[in-house]
Write a protein that binds this DNA or RNA. Sequence first.
DNA 1: TAATGATGATAAAACATTTTATCAGAAGTA
DNA 2: TACTTCTGATAAAATGTTTTATCATCATTA
Lengths: 346, 346
Amino acid sequence: MAVTIRDVAKLAGTSVSAVSAVLNNTAGRHIRVSEATRQRILQAAQQLGYAPNPLARSLVTGRTGVLGLVFPYSRAFIDRNPFSDQIMSGVFEEVVNEGYNLMLHTAVGNDWNAADEKMLIDPRVDGLILVLPNPNSSVIARCEQVRFPAVAVVYATENRQVCTINADDLHGGYLATRHLIELGHTRIAHLAGDPKVSTAEPRLQGYLKALREANLPVQAEWIIQAGFDWKDGYAATRKLLQLPERPTAIFAANDLCAEGAIRALREEDMPVPEEMSVVGYDDTWFATMTNPPLTSVHMPIYEMGKLAAEVLIALVEGRDVQQRQFTLPVHLTIRQSTAPPLKKIQ
Amino acid sequence: MAVTIRDVAKLAGTSVSAVSAVLNNTAGRHIRVSEATRQRILQAAQQLGYAPNPLARSLVTGRTGVLGLVFPYSRAFIDRNPFSDQIMSGVFEEVVNEGYNLMLHTAVGNDWNAADEKMLIDPRVDGLILVLPNPNSSVIARCEQVRFPAVAVVYATENRQVCTINADDLHGGYLATRHLIELGHTRIAHLAGDPKVSTAEPRLQGYLKALREANLPVQAEWIIQAGFDWKDGYAATRKLLQLPERPTAIFAANDLCAEGAIRALREEDMPVPEEMSVVGYDDTWFATMTNPPLTSVHMPIYEMGKLAAEVLIALVEGRDVQQRQFTLPVHLTIRQSTAPPLKKIQ
DNA sequence: TAATGATGATAAAACATTTTATCAGAAGTA
DNA sequence: TACTTCTGATAAAATGTTTTATCATCATTA
């Protein structure tokens, strides 16, 4: 059906190996071919519209030019989280620029079983980019075990064989909280993220660090186990507002969580930022769309995706990567959801 | 390096073909194998942790179990448009459920050149899902020409060989406009989408149809060529507000465009919906996040993605698909951005 | 008893490449 | 002249499967 290398060879009146050498620009290495036949081959290939079969090629070379991108599958995560878009966007940019292709993988549950792992570590891809909430995922261990090229976008606490990429979430939590302190707030709540997700803990630690540094007491009931979804922020804030002693500022787990908080506040007629300051996290495009626009810790998500692809490609191509762990800097983007606290007239 | 079928055969003390037959559950068709050796083979495969090489398998079977998903590459489209997420989410759901894999493709420019087409129509994928703004894209033509299984998610005006999937955008435009008319509006503007995108025109036609049906005059300066991005809605609305005779309601090209409109109105201290009603389009999760939450035409984007994958899989597996064009229904989701016009006291 | 048919199994072909080994002839060198 | 080296090229091996063809063996039947 499709035109093969044999057809080209026949039309050019030469051998299969000569065609292969010419079309891969590898003539002169093992196989020599004269300029005349070179031209004949090129012309024949052009005439037949020949395209090499990547499967056959990969089978013998052991390389496919395809990278696997692994996402934790959850409809919520993919559907309504700008995070996944941006990381994919970054990965894509690099992958396309470097002439690679991208294969998408996912798990139906939260983690992977042995059968899934076998599905991931697969000759069809040269390497894997693992976007995982859980740094102890068995997939990572498996990749390390069989030395399959992989880069994990995850906040890894321990030293790992696999390259890991994360943002400085500890500093992010610190920046957000310090900003509120500098505005004059002393009663600052934190809506913490899902503790199963690796970024939740360092953000909380950053929050605590800033409080300690300013000699502010840590109020246990102002640290609420919320989550990364919109509804988590909403529910947590409602809980917060029922406390006898209310905070004057909220540092939310991420932008969606912050939006949930703003809604709960709006329902209670507490204007943001006048009566309550709110800081988000991630600083995706979504942060500019809320009302008021969110002050948020900027996470270089796009850059993390791009870097992940970059490192993986280096690994795949055999270049040695000296660095094991990459921690990208964060910064604070100040918008209109934060302001000094109201002076209480007593 | 990796364990092959030959290793399994050797350990089981049998032939390669027997192993293949047993592991593919195809024993009895051409090759017969006794229960005893069957067990030996199974045990050997298990013991060695054998996984078949998909490349080699695909090379001979001509099937890969991989579908290609083609997106128009634009950073804006991928980054900040809930549309792409949802369609991908739908495709993913079906693909995972049916045991297929997904390969992501894109073009750096807006369309594809001949070299790109060769890259898309590729033995590595069994078929293509084409998410294209332009129904006249050469990729579609190419797929039709070489009879490569493909499904296009696009509003196709003409009858095509390739299966196309779209939503009833004409009816959507009609629903949005009729809703405003029923609220009592008589001066309704439309911020039209990019005419190069195939959904723009039918939405405009639906708008016109509703106006005609209600015997309302069509005011040319109230139909503004805007676009599908946030900034387009913002700019168009500013233009609209400078007109001597202002409308009392706006039907925007999509939700992002509507949000831009709301912002421009907020800057001019025109509260929505009191002084201006705004209707969006798409009804993604984003529509619930704006202030006020958007009345919007619900597009079954997720379902379109899912259906696209479903149809393509049917095509790939050789089941005959009787229907060529699939048009999914839309409906209106009413929220708080629309209200009756203010009664003018004269 | 010879022919037929079923059973269990294997060898070999095919898939489309790349890579390695081989080979004939020309040219250069002792 | 005889030996080596270089040049242009091809045949064959290898990649890891599935599929087709072939082959014994044994039971069944005429």
